[in-house]
């Protein structure tokens, strides 16, 4: 007869090993196991829309359009708000994988940090389609439908030089520094403006794509640089925040504000001459395309381009009448 002490010892050891095995997973060889592109189990008809934030109307449009298009295509669709927090985004993916969603329409919080989430979903046979924001990995997402930010800011930069002139001082409000859109926009803009040595950037600071932060940052920058001629903002929410700060400082008519997104309030502000220009992205086009790609994937198609750049358009006072409702007015 075994002694109770030995049994206890064995029980403890067994429990420890079981827990260890539950917490561990063997490293998977890319060549081994099921193909990551295998379809989700039949009968699963739910699509998750994971969006970086719903605290910005532009992303609300992106998420709602993706959800609505998925519903039109016959899926249940649920929107998950990551609140610009990679930890929340990761928890959403855990939930989505555990709940066996069919696909994810994804707007990431971090170009590098979000890769692991997409790879986890892929390993669990949940295909991911990126919208608007790029993850810096190939063959993790099925496809990435992305605004051509660089081209948009090249056009914006040229208009900036036309409007501000070839001499002057300006500040730049960057978006989230971990997001590639921030740098593609900034680099596109600087590829033009830096060619004019008379244009001096006196400050460059992140306001994280956030209107309230942009107001605070702009307020602070204005105190140190009261004689600027212009401000380039990496998105429209920040452009509105910067404009509010300029208005409060009595400089709104002297300092030209440039944004990026084509948000409705900024398009109206361009028409009223409050904001000098923005660049229209087409969130509805990107969201619909992502949902349609997911549907085609779940029906068996596998031939998708890894990245699909989507054209953007400069919006100025001269052509603003063509734009509205997050796109072209004539857009079907």
């Amino acid at each position: 007869m075994k002694s109770p002490r030995v049994l206890r010892l064995l029980s403890c050891l067994g429990a420890t090993l079981c827990l260890s095995m539950l917490g561990c997973k063997r490293a998977e060889s890319p060549a081994s196991g099921k193909a990551a592109g295998d379809p989700a189990p039949s009968g699963a008809r739910r699509v998750a829309v994971v969006v970086s934030t719903l605290n910005n109307p532009w992303f609300v449009v992106l998420a709602d359009t993706a959800r609505d298009r998925a519903k039109e295509l016959g899926y249940e669709a649920v929107v998950f708000d990551s609140q610009n927090d990679p930890a929340k985004e990761s928890a959403h993916f855990d939930n989505i994988i555990a709940s066996r969603y069919s696909a994810v329409l994804f707007n990431c919080t971090d170009a590098k940090g979000s890769i692991a989430n997409v790879r986890r979903a892929k390993t669990a046979n949940v295909p991911v389609f990126c919208m608007d924001r790029e993850i810096e990995a190939n063959n993790a997402a099925v496809s990435q439908i992305l605004s051509d930010n660089y081209s948009g800011c090249v056009a914006l930069g040229q208009y900036f030089v036309e409007q501000v002139g070839e001499t002057g001082k300006y500040v730049e409000l960057l978006g989230i520094v971990a997001d590639t859109n921030t740098w593609n926009r900034s680099k596109g803009f600087h590829s033009v403006v830096d060619r004019f040595p008379g244009l001096k950037m006196v400050a460059q600071q992140s306001a994280e794509f956030d209107r309230s932060k942009a107001l605070e940052v702009m307020d602070s920058l204005l105190q140190r640089n009261p004689d600027i001629d212009a401000v380039f903002c990496c998105n429209d929410a920040m452009a509105m925040g910067a404009y509010q700060a300029l208005l409060a400082a009595g400089k709104a008519s002297k300092v030209k504000v440039f944004g990026f997104d084509g948000a409705d309030d900024v398009v109206k502000a361009v028409a009223e001459g409050k904001i000098t220009a923005t660049v229209m992205q087409f969130p509805k086009t990107m969201a619909r395309t992502a949902a349609e790609y997911a549907d085609r994937y779940l029906k068996g198609e596998r031939n998708f381009p890894q990245r699909v750049p989507v054209a953007v358009e400069l919006v100025t006072r001269e052509n603003v009448q063509k734009f509205g409702d997050y796109g072209r007015k004539q857009q079907p």
Partner: peptide, 27 residues
């Protein structure tokens, strides 16, 4: 004058974004 943008890259029809690591490299 100075040349900006993607007209040459995209217009000549010889390059595809999916042949390079990412948008940053394509730009």
């Amino acid at each position: 004058g100075p040349i900006f943008g993607n007209a040459v890259r995209d217009g000549i029809g010889l390059l595809d974004v999916n042949q390079v690591p990412g948008l940053h490299e394509f730009n």
